[in-house]
Nucleic acid binder design. Structure first.
Length: 568
DNA sequence: GCCGTTTTCGGCCCGACTGTTTTCAGTCG
């Protein structure tokens, strides 16, 4: 059992208990435990029962339940709850605007038991007639369903990575195996992946396929042929394994990495040179002239190797042929992380713990950016508490070496466009990242106006998660990004690439547009725990997909250079 | 169900706002 699967069991239990109107704190206990498990760096199976109890939010009972899940693959409690709650209601409570109560009402009054039922009922305007619902709620449901469809049932890259890493190291232990790699959209580091395309070389095919069938998370072998095999994991993720000879490995890796559009352009370019490219190699007539490595393939058509993140047929061939491919951002380029939370508001680690975590990552500077007062649910900081917070940061800064601590705040941009704290307070901050958390459904002009107000403020250095989207859950706010980019460029306000795996906001397309406008980008984790400081890699992947280089990203600078970038 | 310089109970980041009502569920992180 991989950690995300265990977390999923607890999340399901939490949902089912929630629908049954159970003690909300018990529900939350399951949700907290799921989150802790998801954030964990090491596999649960490697922890002793005593260590399990040391984990945040996991006590005797949940530790025992984790052991049960690891040993049996399931939890009796989950089976029991499934008998009591109609299947499909869980899907309903995941829709923004619906919770356990409304899901129950919809099920009881309209016999709605699935997202399909929900869509049909909404289209027939049957929902707005229910007590407690109305036209606006019904419209919101329709919009939410549309937002979900865009990503479909794809899995977040971060979650897919857990399974990809595990299966690759599992397959590498197969006898006679050579190379093993995950291709496809996973290798292109898309924000979500639909399945995992595994590629392997080996002397004999049998042992590698046997090994995949043995992978612990496999629920079902869908197909198994001479060179190709498909399995489905318990969590629904599909894995396709292709076994290829060494001589074709590079060609197969290129072919299965895609994108389809990129490969079409590559083959067209080959044809112009009298060559033919397929998954076995590059051929002149019947003679194979390349295929062992990807570099060979690209070289055969007169190009340097193109990083997978750029293979989206968005102009990479033109850049490559002119020798002007960007030198893409790398994790090591980053010298600081400028958006994180602590126990001062809704973070789960102390200032000290976050500093230690940041030092381990080799950062030269970090900014603490707990919430401002409007975010009441996170116990956001008012002026008085914020100054105490900054005092604590200063005090800590005097005790730690090798890292600079910046006094920051995640400043709420209020519904009416004002900022959540007075100017004299903001003027004392080293770093202000302003974000929208409320009034996300406002019309385009109003949302855009709010962002412009923040951008134009002399005290705001960056805009946090500029569109507010949550991948697979919620569309971003309706905002005129063109206007925002222009203002950000004009006023020297940075825009954030938020590295939370379900945000990755701005997305790749927006980052490309922002770069064209000359907008400075800052890549931050928005970490709420020490572990989440590790999300930086996903921000880097997204930046790479947009072709960003170190110089495009503000927090690759030394602290002195970084400070010069900030508007006064 | 977790947690404890408040340990074996009684708390649990919990308040403004929206859409819908006329008392309340759901949304924000």
């Amino acid at each position: 059992m991989e950690n995300p699967e265990v977390a999923q069991v607890f999340e399901e239990v939490a949902d089912l208990l929630d629908i049954q109107d159970e003690n909300p704190f018990r529900v939350r206990a399951y949700r907290n435990a799921a989150r802790t498990i998801r954030d964990l760096a090491a596999p649960l199976a490697q922890l002793s029962p005593e260590k399990l109890e040391d984990l945040n939010g996991i006590g005797k009972d949940l530790a025992r339940k984790i052991t049960t899940i690891l040993e049996t693959g399931d939890l009796p409690l989950r089976q029991e709850l499934r008998k009591q709650v109609p299947a499909g209601l869980r899907d309903l409570i995941a829709v923004p605007g619906l919770g356990p109560k409304r899901a129950q009402t919809l099920h009881q009054r309209l016999k709605i038991g699935s997202l399909d039922d929900l869509r049909q009922a909404a289209e027939k305007h049957r929902i707005r007639k229910l007590r407690g619902f109305g036209a606006k709620t019904e419209e919101k449901i329709v919009q939410a369903l549309e937002g979900r469809e865009e990503t479909g049932r794809r899995v977040l890259l971060a979650e897919a990575k857990v399974f990809a890493d595990a299966v690759v190291s599992h397959l590498r232990q197969a006898p006679g195996v050579g190379q093993v790699e995950v291709a496809g959209s996973f290798r292109r580091h898309k924000e979500t992946v639909g399945d995992l395309d595994l590629l392997a070389t080996c002397r004999r095919v049998g042992p590698v396929m046997d090994r995949l069938a043995d992978y612990e998370a496999v629920a079902e072998v869908l197909a198994r042929g001479k060179t190709k095999m498909s399995v489905r994991l318990r969590n629904g993720l599909q894995m396709d394994l292709r076994v290829v000879p060494e001589a074709s490995y590079g060609a197969a890796l290129q072919y299965f990495t895609g994108s389809k559009e990129h490969s079409i352009q590559l083959r067209r370019r080959a044809l112009e040179r009298g060559l033919r490219v397929n998954e076995y190699g590059v051929f002149r007539g019947k003679r194979r002239i390349a295929g062992r490595t990807e570099e060979e393939i690209y070289e055969a058509v007169g190009l340097p190797w193109i990083p997978p993140e750029l293979r989206e047929a968005r102009g990479e061939f033109e850049l490559a042929s002119k020798g002007r491919l960007p030198k893409l951002l790398e994790l090591d380029d980053l010298r600081g992380d400028l958006h994180m939370h602590t126990t001062a508001t809704d973070g789960r680690a102390s200032l000290e713990e976050m500093v230690q975590g940041a030092k381990k990552r080799g950062y030269a500077y970090i900014a603490f950016t707990d919430h401002s007062k409007r975010v009441t649910m996170a116990r956001g900081l008012d002026a008085k508490r914020l100054r105490q917070y900054w005092k604590a940061i200063d005090k800590l800064a005097g005790k730690v070496n090798g890292i600079t601590l910046l006094k920051g705040v995640e400043l709420d941009i209020l519904e009416d466009g004002r900022l959540d704290l007075p100017e004299d307070v903001l003027a004392e901050a080293d770093w202000v990242v302003a974000s929208i958390h409320y009034g996300q459904n406002q019309p385009r002009e109003k949302i855009t106006r709010r962002l412009l107000n923040a951008i134009q403020s002399p005290h705001v250095h960056a805009i946090g998660h500029p569109t507010g989207r949550l991948i697979g859950k919620r569309k971003g706010y309706d905002v005129d990004l063109e206007v925002v980019f222009q203002a950000a460029a004009d006023y020297g306000c940075l825009l954030e690439l938020n590295a939370q795996p379900d945000r990755l906001d701005l997305d790749d397309a927006a980052l490309i547009a922002a770069k064209e406008r000359g907008v400075g980008i800052v890549v931050n984790t928005d970490a709420h725990s020490v572990e989440e400081l590790g999300h930086m890699e996903f921000g880097v992947y997204q930046a790479r997909r947009a072709g960003l280089e170190a110089r495009d990203v503000a927090n690759t600078r030394t602290l002195a250079q970084f400070r010069k970038l900030l508007k006064r």
